[in-house]
Structure formats: C-alpha cells, structure tokens
Design a protein around this nucleic acid. Sequence first.
DNA 1: TTCGCCACTTGACGCCGTGTCAATTGACAT
DNA 2: ATGTCAATTGACACGGCGTCAAGTGGCGAA
Lengths: 197, 197
Amino acid sequence: MSSEKPTTRTRILEAAWRLLESGQAEGVRMADIAREAGISRQAVYLHFPTRAELLVATTRYLDEAKNVGQRLAASRSAATGAERLSAFIEAWGNYIPEIYGMAKALLAMKNTDEEAAAAWSDRMQAVRHGCEAAVNALARDGTLSPDRSAEEAIDLLWTLLSVRNWEQLVHDCGWSQGQYIETMQEVARRSLVCDPR
Amino acid sequence: MSSEKPTTRTRILEAAWRLLESGQAEGVRMADIAREAGISRQAVYLHFPTRAELLVATTRYLDEAKNVGQRLAASRSAATGAERLSAFIEAWGNYIPEIYGMAKALLAMKNTDEEAAAAWSDRMQAVRHGCEAAVNALARDGTLSPDRSAEEAIDLLWTLLSVRNWEQLVHDCGWSQGQYIETMQEVARRSLVCDPR
DNA sequence: TTCGCCACTTGACGCCGTGTCAATTGACAT
DNA sequence: ATGTCAATTGACACGGCGTCAAGTGGCGAA
C-alpha cells in the first residue's frame, strides 16, 4: 500500500527526519527540508499541505522505521508486574533519544498548531497505554502501592517518563542514558510498588 | 528605586501579567498587551525594546509582587531535613499555578530566543537552589538515601518539581492542587529519604 | 506667554516564515 | 504529436516583530 519506490515523498520525509534528528529543532524550516531533499520549496507543498502535516507524517514514518510497537512488546513478556515496569521504562526510555528531535519540533508547534497538538497527544497516549499496562500488571500481582489509585499511578508514571523529564536530566543535568534509565526505574519502583524489593 | 508612580511602564507590565495569567499564553502579542494597557503598540517599544525583554521584566515584576523569596524562606525553618523537603515542595508547588501563564510564555520563547532562554534558566536555577538546600538538609541529618549522590538527588528533585510536570498532572490529568502537592511530597520522600517514615 | 521637551500617537515600512497562485519545463505514455 | 503529471521559477498575501518619521498635546521653565 505504501512501499514500492523511493519516491519524492519519502525523500522529503527522510530529509525532515535527518534535519530534526541532528538538529536545533526550531531552526528547521520548510525551505531547509526542501534543500536537504534536493527539491524546490514548493514541491514540498505538493506532498504535504502544511508544515504540521509534514511533521506528523514524519513521526509516523519514524515510528514505522524504528518499530516502537515491537520494542514495547518486549516488556509485555515479563513475568512479574515489577519486572514489566522496569522493562517498559527501559524500552521507552531508550526510545526517547531516537525521537527527541521530532518530539522537540512537535512539542514546539503544539503551542500554536491544533493539528500538531493532536498528533503529539496521540503519540503520548500510546505511551500512556504502556504505563497503564504496567500498572495493571502490578495491580494483578497485588504489588501496586496502596497509597494511590491505579489511575493516579498511571498519571504519575506517565509524567515521570515524559520527554521533557528525559531532556532535563540528560541534556540539562548531563546524566548518561544508563543513569537516567536506572534512576527512573528506581523512582517508579519506590513510588508505585508496595514492597519495593 | 523603582516604586513611586503608576507609570506607563507599570501599566504595561500589569497588562502583560493580566493577559498571560488568564490566558492562552501563546496568543499574547505585543498589540494585545498594548491594547490591554490602553496604549499604542509603538508606545510599548518605548519602554521595552523586544517582546522577550518585556516578558522577562514581567517575571521580575511578578516575583516582586508575589514575593517568592519570602515564601520559600518558610521552608528554611523546618526542623528536620524531611520536613524541610515537604515544606519546600508545598511552597514551590503552590507558587507554580500563580506563575504558570508567564512560565508558559517564557518556555515557548525559549526555543527561539536566547534572552528568554537565559531568563527562564535563571528562574529555574533559583528553584534548583531550593532543591539543593533541601537535599543538603537531608544529608546533614544523615537521612539522604544512599542510592544516589547528592548531585543526582538535586537533579531528580528539581526535575520532579518542574512546571511541565505540574502542567501535565494538574492540567492534562486533572489532578487537584492538593493531590499534586501530596503526591510530589510522597514521591520525593520515597525517592530521596533513606528511611521514609 | 511662549518655548521646548517628552511621552505618546499615527501610519508606513522591512524582515521572515508559511502558505498560495500562475506560468513554464521536461519526461514518459500512448 | 499530444496529454498528463511532477517539478520548477518567481511572485504575492498574511501575520508578527521591530523600526522609522512626522505629528500632537501637556507641562514646566524662562
């Protein structure tokens, strides 16, 4: 349905991806993407009506290429709820840096663009479902901390794992990726698991 | 040095404040502020060279009016480190909603404007110092969790208390302010205090 | 009173980035 | 040869920010 030839459309998506990934996010204009794709600025508009839709399409393209679904699926096979929680944090946490450029651009557009906001919210709901699954696994085991409702636990975990938090710890505070993962796992365990082993 | 007459400058600052506070942040243009202040758009430029500087001046004005320093000082008088941590989280957490409009605007500008980025970073460093003081108090008591260096503990607390996290929990997840404060206190306690009472 | 200063006004303009439009080119298919 | 379709070139409108220049009106000093 969608993968036969190295089309212009694809070249645009890859150009956008390349620029966003290794990039000052905000500084990626339509003209830049066009140049990177070796195409005129107007040609981009032949394929994507607005900048927002191009960004959204790029996220989808990325998700496909990077195969998020499959990665997060790994956490589903964990035996206990606590293990599942850790596996999920590791899977998602290691995915963040790969989508960070995109995320930053989308997050910036979110303020002004309805569509970008919807797209971002959609992606984040997917993460939230992962959080929900992890919390449910804990609840099933009876190891979910009793201090919080399941709903609150999900909200909390989801917030803890936000891209912004990753950005602040890894970029602003200079944490390593490993440090980030381990700490998040531990904070989550201590905050959500009733007898944090 | 700065408070004698209800000057135009002040009216501008108050107009900006009013709009940002009860507002769609991003939708606050120079022209809007001017109109709100009952002044021509150009007159604003007679007092503030750029939008960024106006926003920065507005934060300063707000800080003065709301008296952050004094509020955070309260947490300094707590007896134990753990109490100090809780008091600090409460003080800062309750301050966030009052500056949220400003914060949002500044945060949005941060992407593109050097000066806004610096101003925001400056404000956030102040919060970080509060975090540092709380962590140091724990360390002095010997109740700082041994799993983390003091530096890491500060980074973690600072991140936990970010405006973005407040926004996500209170606005996106619909938490009440009380729910937010209590949960943050508990997560911080469990993550940073060695024998979380 | 008159002059000059100063804050402010009005209105126009340039810059930049997004998005639109129209006219043209060139390849490929039939 | 002709039609189609992707892409090109170049121009333009719009919205925001910031600048510039030429007023206007009020108030204090001479």
